[in-house]
Design a protein around this nucleic acid. Structure first.
Lengths: 196, 196
DNA sequence: GATCTATGTCAACGGCGAATGACATAGGCC
DNA sequence: GGCCTATGTCATTCGCCGTTGACATAGATC
């Protein structure tokens, strides 16, 4: 099976011998694969192939599959990413993003889906509680602020995750009329949670 | 490792030779294991052990792991279950259930978590689109009714799933004050989606 | 250009878990 | 009681995938 995602070129560019570059290529491919297939479903040989590298190098550079996963996880969580959302349009922005078809991916969505995979994969549970609680829920709570911030943050995070899953398992675009209603309702709903 | 869930007795009751009974025992054990560990993380030997049966019987009765999963999935989705919710208290009922600690399980939660595992496990994706769309989203849509039912149903389902995931990865009970606020806000939020 | 090290390649190995098929036996049927 | 089939048990096979170590070679250093 050839790789399906545009972020990783089908014919990897030939690299000179460059440890840093191959390390980066492996990491990039790993993020895609883990996001798409979860920990168990992602295979080192496939990742290496997409990165134009040899599977043995994964062990050399990351110490094994666990190390690669941890590195990819770390690289996927940007603690400051949340604060960059616009408070005024937050709800509608998220809603729009989620209304997209699952296969119209972009890098931000990939990071989210990676987190989702990590969160729901039993094999990676030990890593995850820390990461999700401290790096996802915590920042949201701080960003939201105001009264009952913990509860509101938890609800926002939950809805966020739910939309992500729904998007993941939905295999067709939303019908136009449903799409409008979906964005409108989801948007205002999230927005109201942010504002008070 | 011995099984941890009360639904499956530690020392399975000795059965007479009874294909239906062992089939049922295997199915029950499978639902627990799949719900707890997902498709990849559940092992036929463990399931068989918990059911007090031999792993080979799984192949005989269900045709393999896939067949067992499909059977467990089918058995976990009761199309009529949704209509039994009380329209007046729906929001708060769900919110309360979700506020519980993840390890305080009951049979209903098990079914939900099974669905969640199925939804997020790539190995089972082919099965899922049909199941979730037709047996989960569809019934919710019909039950909700009214204006913009498709969009509202989708949002309710998404929130539902999100709460499920949040509950799954949260490893400690909610603090008392957050708990109250969480139930109150989530409850009214869901309720408003049901009512209009 | 000789040498040396970092980088990359290749071919195994080993474990694990699903699947298979041969064998054992309980329990009905005549 | 003597078969006969459905049910259960056991040992083995098979394939997959992470990992390992031996080997090849590019490219820097002198």
């Amino acid at each position: 099976m050839t790789n399906v995602h545009a972020l990783v070129p089908d014919r990897p560019v030939a690299r000179k011998r460059d440890a840093d570059a191959t390390r980066a290529a492996i990491l990039a491919a790993a993020k895609v694969h883990f996001a798409r297939s979860g920990y168990d479903g992602a295979f080192l040989r496939d990742i290496a192939a997409d990165a134009g590298a040899d599977a043995a190098l994964i062990n050399r550079y990351f110490g094994g599959k666990d190390g690669l996963f941890a590195a990819a996880l770390k690289d996927s969580i940007r603690p400051d990413a949340i604060s960059q959302w616009d408070r005024k349009t937050f709800g509608r922005d998220i809603a729009k993003m989620m209304a997209n078809h699952a296969h119209q991916d972009n890098e931000r969505m990939h990071a989210f889906q990676f987190l989702l995979r990590a969160a729901t994969s039993p094999a990676t549970a030990p890593l995850l509680n820390e990461a999700v609680q401290n790096r996802f829920l915590g920042p949201i709570r701080a960003w939201i602020g105001g009264e009952q911030a913990p509860a509101r943050a938890r609800i926002v995070a939950s809805i966020f995750i739910g939309l992500l899953v729904e998007r993941l398992i939905r295999d067709e675009p939303l019908a136009d009329n449903e799409r409008e209603a979906f964005i409108e309702r989801t948007g205002t709903l999230l927005q109201s949670l942010v504002e008070r």
